[in-house]
Each structure stands twice: as structure tokens, then as C-alpha cells.
Design a protein around this nucleic acid. Sequence first.
DNA 1: CGACTTTGACCCGCGC
DNA 2: GCGCGGGTCAAAGTCG
Length: 257
Amino acid sequence: MASTSQAMINNQGLFEDDQEAPVTQMGFFSFPSNMAHPQLSPLGCLKNFSIPCSTNNNISTNINLSETLISSLSTTSTTTSSPSKHMREDHFTASDHFGGPQLLSLQRSTANLWSWGEVNECMGNKLRSGGGFNGGEDHDDHDHHHHLGVSAMKMKKIKGRRKVREPRFCFKTMSEVDVLDDGYKWRKYGQKVVKNTQHPRSYYRCTQDNCRVKKRVERLAEDPRMVITTYEGRHVHSPSHDLEDSQAPSLLNNFFW
DNA sequence: CGACTTTGACCCGCGC
DNA sequence: GCGCGGGTCAAAGTCG
């Protein structure tokens, strides 16, 4: 898991800037095994996701996933075998009556200018700001990046500025297929063999115009049955198969990542 | 023919 | 400065 991005969370559960990471947070969720490939897009289906975490053991967990999935969560804290220093996992287990669960992990990652509070706030502000991603001080970075395909020339122009990363979510699922159906349409734009792994990492971009969301899919080296999906950015639109259902209330958009 | 995938080349950041 | 590794580009290939 060292290849996944690191979440940097301070005592208030807010994301830190990309200095020394005090703690890397990673959550594991258990989902009912009878969900084949649940529509688990953290960018599309998770609602009001927030994990106020602390660096001590008094972890408070406040997660409202799709309300059908998890009603109550118990939390334990362990240390991972990951080589990444300071790595810690928080395991969230859904109610036992779900039976043998599929394992799904969630990792929240570097969002340099974003804290949890900002994320939640922006979810509310997003529509007002015309879907602008960063809003506020980072606005012209948004302009520079307004299309994902940033040319080398543009990159050079950007160079010298502080690099701003999109918020990231990392899921780990046990799955035969690499790409989970999360309701969005993706186009593959690259594949890379990562060092010390036998499985290549695939790079996908949301096909929607003006949507900058990317995802990365790879298999866990230690356990190839596990698929690690890392989402980066937030969708500015609804999932594709919801588009037909244009009756969907705009309120719903508040919850799309 | 358009949408999508593949894949080698290129760029950039980072550690030494 | 150099080399390595990860991420992205873009031309060519494939598919429906």
C-alpha cells in the first residue's frame, strides 16, 4: 500500500499541507458479501463522508455512507504492515448481520488546500460557484488546469507554483474485475508497470467534459485478489446512468464528489 | 467513423 | 547533476 497516496490528518481531523505527514489514515470498511459490485464510488455514492480523526486512540468516526450500507460502525485501530512510516489503519466494521463481508478500504489523501471542513463546505458551495473545483484562493490554478490534458508547456508555466492536489479517496476491494462499476464513465489513458509488482497500474479519466476526476486501479502485490482503486478529484456531474433519470433532484448534487 | 484501448516516449519530482 | 520511478501524452490500433 505504500504506493497509495498518504492522508495527512491533524489532531482535528483536518488535512495538512504536504509537509511531514504526522499520520497516515486509512479506513477499512466491511460490506455485505451479497453485494456483487456495489455502487461504491466514493465520488458518487458516498454521502456526507467525514472522519474526524485524532492521532490518539480516541478515534471518533462519523460516517454516513449510503444509508443502506452502514448504520453503525465500530472502530478499532491497528498498525499496518505497510513500510510506510506512521501508517495506521482504522478498521470500521459494519454490523455483524451483514455476514462475511467484502473488504473495502478507504483512504483519504492529500488535499493540500482542503481540510475536511473545507471539503464539506465546498460541497455546499460547489453549485454556487458553478462547479468550480477549488474555489477561493486556488482559483487560477483551477483555470490553469481546467482541462486534464495539461501540455508540457503549460506544465512549465505552472512550475514554480505550489502544486495543488485534488482530494483523493483510495478503496481496496476484493474483486475479480479491476474496474468497479461506480456509475461514471471512464476512459483509460495510461498503464504502467509499477516497480516490485507483477500487476500493472491503470489510469482512467472521467469522460465527461470539464470533469477532472481521475482514478487509478491496481492490484495489491501481496494479495492479487484485492483491487486498489484511487479516485482523485471530484465529479462536477452526476453518474452517467443517472443522467437518464433527469428527475433526480438537484439536492442530490450536493453529495457528488 | 467515433469511442476507446494500448503502449512507447516524454516529463517531472525526488533522492542520492 | 544524474538516474529512477511514477504519471501523462498522443499516435496507432481495435472494436462496435
